[in-house]
């Protein structure tokens, strides 16, 4: 697996620069485990991206062939913009949290993770308000093409945000008990990759569903 070894600022030093001749077999085995975990997680994210690309493609195809398609109101676009800002800010706090644990600051890691979870909850609250308006006031649902495409795409993304919020709280609770160190924070890193992925997908959804 040496072909996967390369320095990265977010990685632990042994994984970053490869193992020297004097490294023990246990260290080499642990190093291999960390590399495999990261590779596996990237493969998981790739499969997730494929799912979302399929749904975004489905949304565009349904919109292309639908007889009528509702225009988004200004209020709906502004609400989605606020949600976008919340997710972008939450990605920043996750990065700052990982920076904190790398600087051996457990407390700041917990604080930034909880802020990220709070921003994710704000996003979900905004989505709930939007759904209430679309279903209650405008009468959209799974019976019309827009409702079907919109709710499946944004609903699955919202589910991912919910999973991310729960995961962030779980990681924060473990961090509070001192589970992570500057040399061992792979789980935090995995959560970070997941959260940024959710952010990345929303960036695409926001433009395709609300702006074009």
């Amino acid at each position: 697996m040496n072909w996967l070894l390369k320095y990265s600022p977010m990685e632990q030093a042994p994984v970053l620069v490869g193992m020297g001749e004097s490294a023990s077999s246990a260290e080499r085995a642990e190093n291999e485990v960390q590399i495999n975990r990261r590779l596996g997680f990237w493969l998981f994210l790739a499969s997730e991206l494929l799912i979302f690309c399929g749904l975004i493609g489905g949304f565009l195809v349904v919109k292309h062939y639908a007889a009528t398609w509702p225009e988004h109101e200004l209020g709906s676009i502004l609400l989605a913009s606020g949600n976008t800002f919340a997710l972008l800010a939450s990605s920043l706090t996750v990065v700052l949290g990982i920076d904190a644990i790398r600087a051996r600051n457990q407390r700041n890691l917990v604080v930034f993770l909880l802020i990220s979870a709070l921003l994710g909850t704000v996003f979900l609250g905004g989505q709930a308000v939007e759904y209430k308006h679309f279903i209650g006031d405008l009468g959209h649902g799974f019976g019309d093409p827009f409702g079907t495409a919109f709710f499946i795409l944004t609903g699955l993304h919202g589910l991912h945000v919910l999973v991310g919020v729960v995961w962030a709280i779980a990681v924060a609770l473990r961090a509070r008990r001192g589970a992570y160190t500057a040399a061992n924070y792979t789980t935090v890193e995995m959560f970070g990759l997941y959260w940024h992925f959710v952010d990345l997908v929303w960036i695409l959804i926001f433009t395709i569903v609300y702006l074009i």
């Binding site: 072909w3 996967l4 070894l5 390369k6 320095y7 990265s8 600022p9 977010m10 990261r38 590779l39 990237w42 493969l43 994210l45 790739a46 991206l49 990605s91 996750v94 990065v95 970070g192 990759l193 940024h196 992925f197 952010d199 990345l200």
Partner: peptide, 15 residues
């Protein structure tokens, strides 16, 4: 944010 710029190209290709 996902640090692909600093990773081996294989991770970017996978993604």
């Amino acid at each position: 944010y996902m640090h692909l710029r600093y990773e081996k190209p294989i991770y970017g290709l996978i993604f």
